[in-house]
């Protein structure tokens, strides 16, 4: 379950004056195994909200519960363990440049100390799924934008997370790849993974009519 209760976020960089509130009084709840689109214009706060969900930011105030754990009360170790249960597709992919496609996808499993046998099986399977089994040894700078995005998606789902958070996952994909990705995400969702996908792609939202959280100027204007 993901639950936000009157959550506010204000970015505070050291040595600078605090910025305006990025999120204001956000409250919503997503049940286990639920699916939510996260929509809104650029600058509405979608990425900020996702950052709070995958524990990359602390809220200025309010209460956040992720997969049954109070984020604010988690120790650093507990927070790390919680992050391992969350798959994240970053808007900018964040692939590690020194690792090839295989090792990038294997990273979450290795951090979770899964056996190499399991890593090989799961990474091989997911790379086939995203259509990049032939690009195992390519480094990110040798991959196209779409390929990098598929590697980022594979990395997010390879460890079978309980919660999948995706920030514009179809941004660099053609329609066929986007459709293939949605099949993967909905399959994971049917297996019990809670999914939150931020997107500008209205066509996709219409084709997959899941409930929607809509943000404007840091406020939640639609939930359902």
């Amino acid at each position: 379950m993901v639950r936000f209760d009157d959550v506010w976020l204000r970015y505070q960089h050291s040595g600078r004056a605090p910025e305006a509130d990025a999120l204001r009084g956000i409250s919503f709840e997503i049940e286990d195994g639920g699916f939510r689109w996260l929509t809104g214009p650029s600058g509405a706060g979608k990425t900020s909200l996702l950052k709070l969900i995958y524990l990359a930011e602390h809220p200025a105030r309010g209460r956040i519960e992720i997969l049954g754990a109070r984020a604010a009360r988690a120790t650093r170790r507990e927070a790390a363990m919680l992050r391992r249960r969350i798959g994240v597709v970053y808007q900018d992919f964040r692939l590690l440049p020194q690792l090839d496609a295989y090792d990038n996808v294997a990273l979450p499993m290795r951090l979770a100390r899964r056996s190499e046998t399991q890593v090989q099986a799961d990474v091989g399977e997911i790379l086939r799924w995203v259509g990049l089994a032939h690009r195992l040894h390519a480094r990110p700078d040798e991959l196209s934008g779409g390929e990098q995005q598929r590697i980022a998606i594979a990395r997010a789902v390879v460890a079978r997370p309980k919660l999948l958070v995706a920030d514009e996952p179809t941004g660099n994909l053609d329609d066929e790849q986007a459709e293939r990705l949605m099949l993967l995400i909905t399959a994971l969702n049917k297996l019990g993974t809670t999914v939150i996908v931020a997107t500008h792609n209205t066509g996709l939202v219409k084709r997959y009519p899941f409930p929607r959280l809509s943000l404007e100027h840091g406020r939640l204007v639609h939930d359902g």
Partner: peptide
């Protein structure tokens, strides 16, 4: 990134 993926 590694921290975000759950590295201790």
């Amino acid at each position: 990134t590694v921290h975000g993926l759950g590295a201790l």
